[in-house]
Design a protein around this nucleic acid. Structure first.
Length: 599
RNA sequence: GGUCUCGUAGCUCAAUGGAUAGAGCAACUGCCUUCUAAGCAGUAGGUUGCUGGUUCGAGUCCAGCCGGGAUCACCA
């Protein structure tokens, strides 16, 4: 499938610069460095001329001047230039900028050139089922969802999935404690969300476990022995054994409590605004990798030790040896992940790879996993990517469930929405809204603030979550950008009331500085989306949306729009505003953030 | 200890090897009788942890050191 894609301004300019340099000096470097001009200088595009001096055999300033003169003479785009040291600052003609806006206005993809026929899978969330979601899961979910949306915007068919860690000792702990102390309590009888109720018994387990250990140690037992010997732990281990033996009563309890957790999770996911195409359950996949590992033993990829355990030797890759099957033949985490990966490529044969959104404490694990998949001969192993993100720290330090410093996802979302509502009411701009409309708006703003806060930071970096600062709705925040959108929409409504419509085709003799700057920013959007996808970084989009909103606000505050006497200018400014609103909405949607019509 | 990773304004964060390192918050000054002030303009705030090296050019690359963090389980 081929498209007739019109060349965009950046590509055209690059081509013209290459031609100019070739005409002047006989040849041109392949990778010309063209960067946005610093705001302190005039122009929009800057050619860094130092690398060209090798070909020009002249000083950087003279090289820049010669190229600039050539471009002004030969290029329809470049209107004038200035040289600062070795930097050639180019000013693009206003007519060209107007063309950029006209093209953008007509393009449903805002200049993004979609690829087609490519598919990718994005895994995110993937919680344990023994406690509710917390702040760390929020970063995970928002990141994974956003990366999937960004890939989608580039034309990929994306499959959002998660692996639910529904089996193992952790859920057995909650089950044991519930059995011992629950008295048949249910989410309904307790009036508590299912995931929180199960989490309550996980905490209950831990409390009793600790008390028992203390007693045992006081009685002279070593700490290591006490950890294993504590009666309640014995009961949990017994529970796991029964589960693996498919004991009917245990399986029934397991199903019931996991069911509570799922309905709780679903409510949380819904409020978060994330979704999944398919859920994988560890209980259904944990045996799958075993066959592949055994096959690997036969083909010599893995080896068996005397005690029967199976290992992979990665010392040649600079890593260690890693166990894949225990001596009793059971699977470990790695084995399960091998099986899950294969299952997913079987379910979705057209995906070219998958993105695993998992915290950076598992970097070693994924390095090993991808190496193993490669050794097993799977081509797609090279296209698997660990979207590794940093921990979210609190001002008090690391979140620790044992110390009760975990920030609960449901609580946090509720607080953010409540704060948004409070501030909206105080401003008094929405007094005529119905209660339902106010709630809907508060939801949009509160979640927008939270998502933006977590997404604006480079995913790879560890970040600080200060509850007081994060709840702020001013400055470099989601609500700032939402506000800019709402204000434009209000402007357009008011214009429509007065019978004024945005131009469909902009035509002006010249642009105001602030107008040109907004168009220059709009022109960068497609490239920034590409960059975000390349780096798996929603932060790129988040920062772009902020820059665009800032540029627009400056324009908004500098020129008059509805009271502009010149009808051509007025309709052009409406068109520019409408385009900004559209790009804000689009870019924010890539972050999973909705924008309001008024606020 | 081995490996990986981070260290930028008081705080939280930006900066494809390029120009005098930028925003927001906090502090201080202005701007609502005119399109939404959740906004705009301005002041102040820096030896980019330290020392070398590579380069025309280093916050960015390399080496060493100092200081955080992660990881190195027949846990997940």
């Amino acid at each position: 499938m081929t498209f007739n894609i019109p060349m965009n301004l950046d590509q055209q300019l690059r081509q013209e610069i290459t031609q100019a340099i070739t005409a002047l000096f006989g040849s041109s470097p392949d990778n010309l460095q063209i960067q946005p001009t610093n705001p302190e200088f005039e122009g929009s595009h800057t050619l860094v001329c130092f690398p060209v001096t090798k070909i020009s055999r002249k000083g950087p300033e003279e090289t820049a001047r010669l190229i600039g003169e050539k471009l002004v003479a030969a290029s329809a785009l470049v209107s004038h230039f200035n040289v600062v040291k070795g930097f050639l600052n180019l000013s693009v003609a206003d007519a060209a900028w107007l063309q950029v806006l006209n093209d953008l206005r007509k393009d449903a993809h805002f200049g993004i050139q979609p690829v087609t026929g490519r598919e990718i899978m994005v895994e995110y969330s993937s919680p344990n089922t023994n406690k509710p979601l917390h702040l760390g899961h929020l970063r995970n979910n928002f990141l994974g969802y956003s990366v999937a949306e960004i890939m989608k915007a580039l034309g990929y068919t994306t499959h959002k999935v998660q692996i639910i860690n529904d089996r193992g000792i952790h859920i057995c702990k909650s089950m044991t404690a519930w059995k011992l102390f629950g008295n048949g309590e249910t989410p309904e009888s307790a009036g508590i969300k299912g995931d929180h109720l199960v989490g309550k018994y996980y905490v209950e387990f831990d409390k009793n476990y600790k008390a028992q250990m203390r007693d045992l140690v006081a009685g002279g037992m070593s700490e290591a022995d006490a950890e294993k010997q504590a009666p309640i732990m014995q009961q949990a281990i017994d529970m796991l054994r029964k589960w693996e033996a498919k004991d009917a009563e245990t399986v029934q309890l397991w199903k019931m409590m996991n069911g509570w957790v799922y309905s709780g999770f679903n409510a949380t996911y819904q409020r978060m605004g994330v979704d999944f195409e398919k859920l994988y359950y560890e209980s259904e996949t944990y045996l799958l990798g075993k066959d592949e590992v055994l096959k690997g033993v036969e083909s010599g990829v893995f080896f068996r030790k005397d005690d029967g355990s199976v290992w992979v030797d990665l010392t040649a890759d600079g890593l260690d040896q890693k166990v894949l099957l225990r001596s009793d033949g059971t699977s470990v985490y790695m084995t399960q992940d091998i099986g899950t990966a294969m299952l997913r490529f079987r379910d979705f044969p057209k995906i070219e790879g998958q993105v695993y959104t998992v915290g950076n404490e598992q970097e070693y694990h994924f390095k090993v996993l991808f190496l193993i998949l490669g050794k097993l001969g799977y081509e797609w192993a090279r296209k698997c990517y660990h979207l590794s993100y940093g921990m979210v720290d609190l001002p008090t330090g690391k979140m620790k469930s044992r110390e009760g410093t975990v920030v609960d996802a449901d609580d946090l979302m509720a607080e953010m929405v409540a704060e948004a509502k409070k501030q909206a009411m105080e401003l008094g701009k929405i007094d005529d809204m119905s209660a339902a409309e106010v709630d809907q708006l508060a939801e949009m703003i509160g979640l927008g603030a939270l998502k933006y806060f977590l997404l604006k930071v480079d995913p790879k970096k560890r970040m600080m979550f200060d509850p007081n600062e994060s709840i702020s709705l001013q400055g470099h925040t989601g609500p700032f950008i939402q506000y800019t959108h709402a204000r434009i929409r209000a402007l357009l409504r008011k214009a429509a009331e007065r019978g004024l419509a945005p131009a469909t085709q902009a035509a002006l003799p010249a642009l105001e500085k602030s107008e040109r700057e907004v168009i220059v920013r709009l022109n960068q959007y497609a490239a920034r989306v590409q960059e975000a996808a390349r780096d798996y970084s929603p932060a790129v989009i988040a920062n772009y949306a902020y820059e665009l909103a800032k540029d627009y606000n400056q324009f908004y505050q500098t020129v008059s729009i509805l009271s502009e006497a010149d009808a051509t200018k007025l309709s052009f400014r409406l068109m520019l505003s409408a385009t900004v609103a559209d790009v804000i909405r689009h870019s924010m949607s890539l972050l999973g953030i909705q924008v309001p019509e008024r606020m």
